[in-house]
Amino acid sequence: MLAPYACQPDQSRGRLFPEKLSTFRSPFQRDRDRIIHSSAFRRLKHKTQVFVEHEGDYYRTRLTHTIEVAQVARTIAATLGLNVELAEAVALAHDLGHPPFGHTGEDALAVLMEPYGGFDHNAQALRIVTRLERHYADFDGLNLTWETLEGMAKHNGPVIGPNASGSHSVSDPALMPYALAEVNGRIDLELSTFASAEAQVASVADDVAYNHHDLHDGLRAGLFTEEDLMDLPVTGPAFHEVDQMYPGLDPMRRRHEALRRVFGVMVEDVIAVAQNRLQASQPQSADAIRAMDGPIIRFSKPLYQNLKAIKSFLFTRMYRAPTVVVERKRVTAVVNNLFPLFLKEPGLLPDEWQADVAAAADETALARVVLDYVAGMTDRFALQEHERLVGGS
């Protein structure tokens, strides 16, 4: 039984290209399945989360991160009476637009694309699922439901308007990433409102997952130690609790037990806050959630402040650690070399991309084709192409 404020599958606003309903799957289940079977989803296996994918088999990749986000989203959505399949679909799709080398690759492409409409991985994900996945006979893309597309566009909050404040928001609609503007021109995603509660769950699940696994990966990489975490909020109390319950515990088990408690604190906080806010506001439809002046799914203010302290620690000790910075410079050079090379010599793109090259009416259109190709690369393929075409990395 879904709550009244959940997205009801029989009330979906439909798809860009109408399709017959499945006899045994809801529209959101079909979205989830199409995302999992997409080429872009498979490529996440060899895309960076923090560490370049070849640096170690134990570190998270963009794919394992996405699976963890989906697991958290399913748990929270089910507890709150939301549509689990929609929350999972948005979670599985939220990082499809990430280029090789994670945020480092995104930063490089954003600079390179400044003359051509910019680059934003969130908007690129929408471009992938509406244009670049070309497997079906009747349409380009995956032809996902309006609700899934809306969730992909707005899971971090409204993109435009008075409530726009998320990481992908813009102060002026004219500054909207071209990939998002193109999709929104075809199917109005109501970018000035909040997304469904299911999409908000996917967004918070993203925060839960990376806060948890970045601590784990940073410890495994030796960028900091358990002792460094003892003075931080949330992590320090978690280690103290484990030490009291299991004195002398094996170090690896101690680490796991502490970090699973950190994970639990975050999930339980989100659920408790959402239950209180839902009880207070009594929304009677998914649109009532969208019309609110703030997100219904979020951390409590005390935990949010504590997580800011953890993120600040991770930024200094992990994301900007000397070894990571060295690798960032190296892979930035790879992107900075490949993009202008393909722009200057588009004949170097594979044969299946030449029709798009021929259809490009001007340099901006050509740059966007090159972007689609480069952004779709995995870490290893980008490094291999750089070695082949440039002669080293």
Rank of each mutant, 00 (worst) to 15 (best):
residue 338 L to M: 08
residue 10 D to Y: 13
residue 209 A to V: 04
residue 290 R to V: 09
residue 52 V to A: 12
residue 312 S to I: 10
residue 72 V to D: 03
residue 383 L to G: 11
residue 368 R to E: 01
residue 82 L to C: 09
residue 243 D to V: 07
residue 19 E to C: 02
residue 242 V to L: 02
residue 204 V to E: 04
residue 306 N to V: 04
residue 93 A to G: 06
residue 245 M to A: 15
residue 86 L to P: 01
residue 138 D to I: 06
residue 13 R to H: 08
residue 316 T to L: 11
residue 172 D to G: 11
residue 102 G to I: 08
residue 203 S to F: 06
residue 224 F to E: 05
residue 304 Y to C: 13
residue 312 S to R: 14
residue 298 R to F: 04
residue 352 E to V: 09
residue 193 T to M: 13
residue 187 I to W: 02
residue 302 P to I: 14
residue 30 R to V: 14
residue 139 F to V: 13
residue 330 R to H: 08
residue 188 D to L: 12
residue 371 L to N: 04
residue 358 A to T: 07
residue 317 R to Q: 12
residue 210 Y to G: 04
residue 274 A to W: 02
residue 383 L to W: 05
residue 328 R to M: 10
residue 60 R to V: 06
residue 300 S to L: 11
residue 23 T to F: 12
residue 152 M to Y: 05
residue 202 A to G: 03
residue 369 V to N: 03
residue 283 P to M: 10
residue 122 N to M: 09
residue 359 A to E: 06
residue 364 T to E: 02
residue 128 I to K: 00
residue 171 S to I: 09
residue 46 H to R: 15
residue 278 L to K: 09
residue 147 E to P: 06
residue 230 M to L: 15
residue 378 T to P: 10
residue 170 V to D: 00
residue 288 A to V: 12
residue 331 V to I: 12
residue 91 A to H: 02
residue 307 L to M: 05
residue 353 W to N: 03
residue 145 T to D: 02
residue 391 G to T: 10
residue 255 R to T: 11
residue 190 E to I: 14
residue 44 L to N: 06
residue 10 D to N: 14
residue 42 R to S: 13
residue 79 T to R: 15
residue 246 Y to F: 15
residue 38 S to I: 05
residue 366 L to D: 03
residue 327 E to V: 12
residue 41 F to W: 09
residue 357 V to R: 09
residue 233 P to R: 08
residue 231 D to P: 00
residue 346 P to Q: 11
residue 102 G to V: 07
residue 5 Y to N: 05
residue 290 R to Q: 12
residue 211 N to Y: 05
residue 298 R to T: 07
residue 88 E to F: 00
residue 9 P to Y: 02
residue 83 N to C: 03
residue 76 I to K: 05
residue 380 R to V: 14
residue 392 G to C: 11
residue 335 V to L: 07
residue 40 A to S: 12
residue 234 V to Q: 03
residue 211 N to C: 09
residue 211 N to M: 13
residue 160 I to Q: 09
residue 334 V to C: 08
residue 147 E to L: 00
residue 100 P to Y: 09
residue 131 R to N: 08
residue 102 G to W: 03
residue 285 S to M: 11
residue 299 F to P: 14
residue 130 T to H: 00
residue 366 L to N: 06
residue 218 G to V: 05
residue 356 D to V: 06
residue 97 G to R: 03
residue 326 V to I: 13
residue 332 T to D: 10
residue 214 D to W: 07
residue 241 E to S: 10
residue 386 H to T: 14
residue 121 H to A: 03
residue 94 H to I: 07
residue 20 K to A: 15
residue 87 A to C: 07
residue 215 L to I: 06
residue 292 M to E: 11
residue 69 V to M: 00
residue 188 D to V: 13
residue 302 P to T: 14
residue 69 V to T: 06
residue 297 I to A: 03
residue 251 P to Q: 12
residue 26 S to K: 04
residue 220 R to I: 12
residue 111 V to M: 03
residue 231 D to Q: 15
residue 235 T to W: 01
residue 94 H to L: 10
residue 382 A to I: 11
residue 65 H to V: 11
residue 139 F to H: 15
residue 22 S to F: 01
residue 208 V to K: 03
residue 236 G to S: 06
residue 247 P to S: 12
residue 269 D to I: 01
residue 291 A to Y: 10
residue 100 P to K: 08
residue 360 A to L: 08
residue 301 K to D: 12
residue 383 L to P: 11
residue 292 M to C: 09
residue 25 R to G: 00
residue 43 R to Y: 11
residue 118 G to P: 01
residue 127 R to G: 02
residue 231 D to S: 15
residue 67 I to N: 03
residue 384 Q to R: 15
residue 337 N to L: 10
